[in-house]
Computed example of a mutant assay.
Amino acid sequence: MRDVNHGLGYTLWQLQHRIQRMLEREMGALRVTLAQASALARLEEEPGTSSAELARHLLLSPQAVSLIIGRLEAAGHLVRAAPAGGRSRPLALTESGRRILGDAERAIQRVRAAVFGGLDAGEREVLQDLLDRSLAAAKDHG
């Protein structure tokens, strides 16, 4: 029997795909993408982050992040500060960006509850540990 449509890897892929669709639906209701919400979260964690730093953190190309920043800026969710000596223009959340980020975080919690609500805290902790270890092993192999 072939392992293409069966087994742990396929189950993880299916779960990731369903979570992605659920998150996209939730973010769509907020009129942001998941990548945009992730950018807002990073900017809240690290105010003054440059677009290059944001691209590295989000694992996206500088061009993709430039589009994300442009859309968030046009929507009034972030501003670019004047450069401080270099060419880099630090990014900062606006009040609107903070509001959208709060809404996005609540949406993510709803998805998390829908997907993992059937597991108790101990089971979630074990699952997280197993997935973290598997991710670390996969990183070791490229």
Rank of each mutant, 00 (worst) to 15 (best):
A29M: 07
G86C: 07
V79A: 14
I100W: 09
M27V: 05
V111P: 05
L15R: 14
H57P: 00
D132S: 11
A55Y: 02
Y10L: 05
V4P: 05
R124H: 00
Q14F: 10
I108K: 05
A41H: 13
A35I: 02
A41M: 02
S88K: 12
A29L: 09
A81K: 11
L54W: 04
E24P: 03
G122F: 12
L131V: 15
P90M: 15
G70N: 05
A104W: 09
A75N: 06
R89T: 04
G118K: 08
A113Y: 15
A29K: 15
A35H: 06
T11R: 15
G102Q: 06
A29R: 15
A84M: 08
G97H: 00
Q109P: 00
N5Y: 11
K139Q: 14
R99Y: 08
G142S: 11
H57L: 00
E45I: 03
A81C: 05
G86M: 01
R133Y: 04
A52R: 15
R89E: 12
S88F: 14
H17I: 00
H17V: 00
A52P: 00
D3P: 03
L23S: 09
Q63K: 10
E26H: 06
Q36N: 01
Q36E: 15
L59D: 09
A84G: 08
D3S: 13
G85S: 08
L40D: 02
G118P: 00
D120P: 12
T49P: 05
L78E: 02
V32A: 00
R71F: 02
L131S: 04
V79H: 11
A121G: 08
R87N: 10
D132H: 09
G70S: 06
E53M: 02
V126P: 06
A81P: 01
Q109R: 13
E46V: 12
K139D: 07
V4K: 07
R21D: 08
L12N: 08
D103S: 10
G118M: 03
L91A: 10
D129R: 13
R56F: 06
S38M: 10
D3K: 10
L59P: 00
T33H: 00
E73Y: 04
E73C: 03
A35C: 02
R110S: 06
L34P: 01
A92D: 03
Y10T: 05
A35V: 04
V111G: 11
N5L: 13
L72Y: 06
G85L: 08
V65N: 01
I68D: 04
R31H: 09
A114V: 08
I100S: 14
I100F: 12
A75V: 01
P90L: 14
I69Y: 01
M22W: 09
R98M: 08
G102S: 03
R98E: 02
R133M: 02
V32E: 05
A107D: 11
A82F: 10
Y10I: 01
L58H: 06
R106H: 05
D103E: 15
A39G: 05
E125D: 11
E45K: 06
R99F: 09
R112W: 10
L135R: 05
G102K: 05
L60G: 02
A52N: 13
R18K: 14
L127F: 11
D103T: 01
